[in-house]
Nucleic acid binder design. Structure first.
Lengths: 251, 251
DNA sequence: ACCATCATGTAGACGAGTCTAACAGATGTT
DNA sequence: AACATCTGTTAGACTCGTCTACATGATGGT
């Protein structure tokens, strides 16, 4: 049939399939339906039609009941997908510091929506990191930062990055539960981890977000923060974990 | 009906819908089918069933032919999606330096696959950037880097980051078209932009990738690089743009 | 009152991607 | 030779999300 994808782009699922074939061929020389199904966690019955679609696009050589192989065109496609995958894994794992398993899993999900422009910029970021003396030291500092590593997320005074800056964040940031109503604030950090942190982030409490305290103050049992026209309710525990700075004007 | 999503997660499309409703309510107080359809670039006929599904999940208040509104539960869902969206836009735009339009577009595509773990780590990255004296200087340096900004991607000696490191990358990196066959190499930078750069990156030529030169050398009209068992063909123009360092052992 | 217009809803179709269940070939094992 | 097992294919069903085409309701003008 040969539909010639040329400028076309594959669906996410087909990209996954072609990437899987690529990895299997690379690691085991051959790709069989069974292996593809296992790797993608689908039933073999789902693989056959997918291979047919890829074969129609001229991306795999697919003869029924025989080994599956990539065409040169398919290899190009696969490598593109895989390059995105690779760069995302490395970003998630080695820059953000995610555990490998989670990094791979997330990369698999995101690789299909990483545009060429984003890919370009992400690679430049890595180039800078590895190529420039400035970049190389940055990652170490970031990963050594107690704020990032520790459960409690405190930026402690013994942090190497603070040798030259004795005035640390605890000198200028305060907790959300300590400011009185009417106060406009800017969020600087969420000092929590695990479920509590997730809950706070999910509410849109993110660094640099601005808001106004509607209800709160020390001893309150309920805190209300207005952000972008919506009122967010925080428990005392949540409010205590949010570090903010008061802010003068603007929302 | 009220299916109670609780632990369930929405499909990407439903997340898009609820996010759209959120933005419309925030910006215009009300959300109508027509607006949702326009914002999501679908026909109105597609919106009705989506709203019904969201209403069944208890996430929107949806009375036929009336304004659409979020339930408190829906607002929580929407804010979670929107938080992911926001953080991705900021990362793509203000860290990686992508143009706003592209950043928003890519964020829209990726937000559905950003796991809580990735969200957590991404936010820590921002916290570090804004909170730590170390972080604040980094972004400036990165964005000022001529390697990143310039078309030709050269790391020039007048870069502020190199005041203290007079030996720049051009002292230790060479071009792929200048090394002879059999040489094992590590890629350090792709010194190109636009379509040429995209083509090279799509081949899997990424910083820190290792490979072996099979064919090449100065004056060659065709270069072959073996990476992970696959042979990549490069044109002279492409090979000239790839900066590498020779490497001793390992692939 | 009647009609034009626009927003919304309904019906039906379709493609993608998955599943289950049943079938077909291939390769042993006894 | 007969059977068992494993791998792959086919057929048919289903969900999701979209579409087109048409129907309905609401509103305003003449």
């Amino acid at each position: 049939m040969m539909v010639e994808p040329d400028e076309a782009s594959l669906t996410g699922a087909l990209e996954d399939y072609i990437e899987t074939v690529y990895e299997l061929v690379r690691d085991h020389k051959v790709a069989r339906v069974r292996d593809i199904a296992r790797a993608r966690k689908v039933r073999s019955a789902s693989v056959t039609p997918a291979m047919r679609r890829l074969a129609d696009l001229g991306l795999v050589r697919y003869v029924q009941r025989e080994y599956i192989d990539l065409t040169p065109e398919g290899e190009r496609f696969a490598r593109r997908v895989y390059a995105r995958h690779q760069i995302l894994v490395r970003f998630l794992q080695h820059v953000l510091g995610m555990p490998e398993g989670a990094a791979v899993q997330d990369a698999c999900a995101m690789e299909h929506s990483l545009s060429p422009v984003a890919m370009d910029h992400l690679v430049r970021f890595f180039e800078f990191l590895g190529y420039c003396p400035e970049g190389s030291s940055f990652l170490e500092r970031f990963h050594a930062c107690p704020m990032i590593r520790n459960e409690d997320g405190r930026c402690t005074a013994d942090c190497p990055a603070r040798r030259d800056a004795p005035a640390g964040p605890e000198d200028w940031a305060v907790r959300l539960d300590s400011v009185s109503p009417e106060c406009r604030v800017r969020i600087v950090q969420v000092e929590a981890s695990g479920a509590l942190r997730d809950r706070i982030l999910d509410m849109g409490i993110l660094p640099d977000v601005h808001g106004a305290v509607l209800r709160g103050g020390p001893g309150s049992d309920r805190f209300t923060l207005r952000v972008q026209g919506f009122d967010i309710e925080l428990s005392p525990e949540e409010a205590n974990a949010v570090l903010i700075v008061p802010v003068e004007e603007g929302s």
